[in-house]
Amino acid sequence: MPHEVDMTKALMMSLKDWYSQQTERWPVRRVQLLVGEFTCVEPDLLRTAFAKQKLGTFLENAEIAIRDSPFIAFCRNCEREYKPDINLEYGCPECRAPLDEIRSGRELKIEKVDWDIPVGAER
């Protein structure tokens, strides 16, 4: 869980910086993340860390929504995408070429922040 705690701290620092730059500071309802399979971040542990660290902050009532990004590589020899397997040392399952290009799975980013906009307020 220490990895997820550190990731959550970095996430909250980014959100705090972003929030401080907003002209309207409505309550944050949801933070939507994209988390790649190859980041080694466990979504459930990230949710737990976020639930603990948000207490007493502007994110206290916010929930976290996580969208997974699969680990996909590309083999230049075979000219095809594949799902890397640790048992093959992540190499291409067809030609056994070493992992050369990662197409997805390394992402860890904020995709969207949803506000609780008061009735009658305009953005």
Rank of each mutant, 00 (worst) to 15 (best):
D116T: 12
E4V: 02
L11V: 00
G120H: 08
S20M: 14
V41E: 09
P118I: 05
R47N: 11
C40K: 14
E107K: 07
I102G: 01
V41C: 12
D114P: 03
D68N: 12
F71H: 02
R103I: 10
Q21G: 14
R123E: 12
C78K: 04
P93L: 01
F38G: 00
Q32L: 11
K109G: 12
E60V: 00
T23V: 13
E42G: 07
R30N: 09
L45N: 11
P98N: 07
L45A: 15
S69E: 08
T8L: 00
R80N: 13
A65I: 09
F71S: 00
M12C: 01
A62S: 14
G105E: 01
F38M: 11
W115V: 10
F50W: 04
R47P: 06
L15K: 05
D85H: 09
W26L: 01
P93K: 04
R123G: 09
S14Y: 11
C95N: 03
S14C: 10
P93Y: 00
E24S: 11
N77A: 12
P2D: 14
K109E: 12
L55G: 08
L55N: 09
V113T: 08
G120P: 00
A121D: 15
R96L: 10
F71R: 02
V35K: 00
R30T: 14
P118M: 00
S20E: 15
G91Q: 00
Q21F: 03
K54V: 10
F74L: 13
E81T: 09
C78P: 08
D68Q: 13
P98K: 07
G36P: 09
C75E: 13
E81N: 14
R103S: 07
D17F: 04
D6Q: 14
F58L: 07
E101H: 12
F74Y: 15
N87D: 12
W26D: 00
E81I: 02
L33F: 10
E4T: 01
I64F: 03
I102P: 05
E89C: 10
E122G: 09
T39D: 09
E101G: 00
L59H: 07
A65H: 10
F71M: 01
I110T: 10
T8K: 02
P98E: 02
D85W: 06
I66G: 08
L15Q: 06
C78F: 02
M1F: 09
T23S: 13
L108W: 10
P2F: 13
D100G: 11
E79M: 08
I110L: 08
T48G: 05
